[in-house]
Amino acid sequence: MRDATPGVVAVEEVAGQWLLEALDLPSSSAVGFVTGCTTANLAGLAAARDALLAARGWDVATQGIQGAPRLRALVGAERHGSVDLALRYLGLGAPTPVAADAQGRMDPDALRAALGQDDAPTVVCAQAGNIHSGGFDPFAPICAAAHDAGAWVHVDGAFGLWAAASPALRHLVVGLADADSWATDAHKTLSTPYDSGVAVVRDAGALRRAFGHSADYLLHSQEPDPHELVPEMSRRARGVPVWAALRSLGRSGLVDLVDRLVRSSRGLAMGLAEVPGLTVLNDVVYTQVTVAAVDDETTLAVLARLHEDGLVYPSASRWHDRAVMRFSVSGYATDDVAVAQTIRTVWEAVEAVTLGEG
């Protein structure tokens, strides 16, 4: 609380302002430090829910959501499951998918058509960084179409929101700052410990109205306390590790970190593309590299070999109806040596599987 622990609150607020500056988001936005991107999505979508329903004359805080005007959520066909989970927590049910292209990016024309089918209060959930391709939704036309229809735009940017920190990657996030709320994880790029998500809402009052509360025994300040911007009252000072990481890196260090992760991803993709029998399936625009062997059986066998060895540990997934290996380059220690070692280890695993060794 601000009056009880003013130093810690000041550190969190500085961290929030640094984040807004680094990611080029509106400077007056509210920043809440939460457990992870699922909860950050929940926070942004709670603010959206309450604001959209308030515009229709319905106060969620006093009336709840039973009997409220139906609120719909439009999402890309390849959104992350945490968005669905947050919507479920908020009592909004399953979202309506909008068509996406081969890299998982939402089709703005399909979105505009979907928006025109209904005049219900609507939240549009865009994505910064597809989990398989790393692709970014086209934010400018998405925000324009949504706002023309009176909809709220929320961006799930668990790892991809950090692209906004790099001038070299700004082409990926054109229009990002036009959204109404954003969510990200600090552990995926800043390498803070887990339990380090960030929710950002353009309308600071909307976030406080969604989570603000009072009790006679609590100290109260003129300015909102950090716990009034997030779902929890009892919480550790999650913003302090974020402050420490940003203080250590500085602005130029953050840019260098993001650029190095992307450079490592591209080097990894180039090397894996040379492995006989492997195919890189995505356009490597950010930090995700998704590959597959000639068939699902071989892909899964290579994965098993890698996991047994333990030096390189890609995740198993399915994309475009086939088994894939997904490499997410987000560790600050990843360098050219690590990339070369990964390529070599994967090459050896593929050879062992295809030649029938051990």
Score class of each variant (00 low, 15 high):
D148L: 02
G150W: 00
G150T: 01
G150S: 04
A151S: 04
A151M: 01
W152C: 00
V153W: 00
H154T: 00
H154G: 05
V155E: 08
D156A: 10
A158N: 06
A158Q: 08
A158C: 12
F159I: 04
F159A: 09
G160N: 05
G160C: 06
L161A: 11
L161P: 01
W162K: 04
W162F: 12
A163H: 05
A163Y: 03
A164V: 04
A164D: 07
A164K: 03
S166V: 06
S166T: 06
S166W: 04
A168S: 13
A168G: 10
L169R: 14
L169Q: 15
L169V: 10
L169D: 10
H171M: 07
L172H: 10
L172A: 09
L172K: 10
L172S: 09
V173T: 15
V174A: 13
V174E: 13
G175E: 03
G175R: 01
L176H: 02
A177H: 01
A177I: 00
A177G: 04
A177L: 00
D178R: 10
D178T: 06
D180M: 07
S181V: 00
W182E: 02
W182L: 04
W182D: 02
W182P: 01
W182K: 04
A183N: 08
T184P: 03
T184R: 03
D185W: 10
D185V: 08
A186H: 00
H187M: 12
H187D: 13
H187Q: 13
H187K: 12
K188L: 15
K188F: 09
T189K: 02
T189M: 09
L190K: 06
L190G: 08
S191V: 06
T192C: 01
P193V: 00
P193D: 07
Y194E: 13
Y194G: 13
D195V: 08
D195L: 11
D195C: 09
D195K: 11
S196E: 03
S196D: 04
G197C: 05
V198E: 05
V198C: 07
V198G: 06
V198R: 05
V198L: 11
A199F: 03
A199E: 07
V201K: 02
R202N: 02
R202K: 14
A204P: 08
A204F: 02
G205Q: 06
G205T: 06
G205A: 07
A206E: 07
A206F: 01
L207S: 03
R208N: 10
R209S: 09
R209A: 11
A210G: 07
F211P: 10
F211C: 07
G212T: 03
H213T: 15
H213F: 15
S214R: 15
S214C: 12
A215W: 13
D216W: 13
Y217F: 15
Y217A: 12
Y217D: 14
Y217C: 12
L218A: 12
L218H: 13
L219E: 15
L219D: 15
S221I: 03
S221L: 11
Q222T: 14
P224G: 09
D225M: 09
D225N: 14
D225P: 09
P226K: 12
E228W: 10
E228F: 08
E228C: 08
E228I: 02
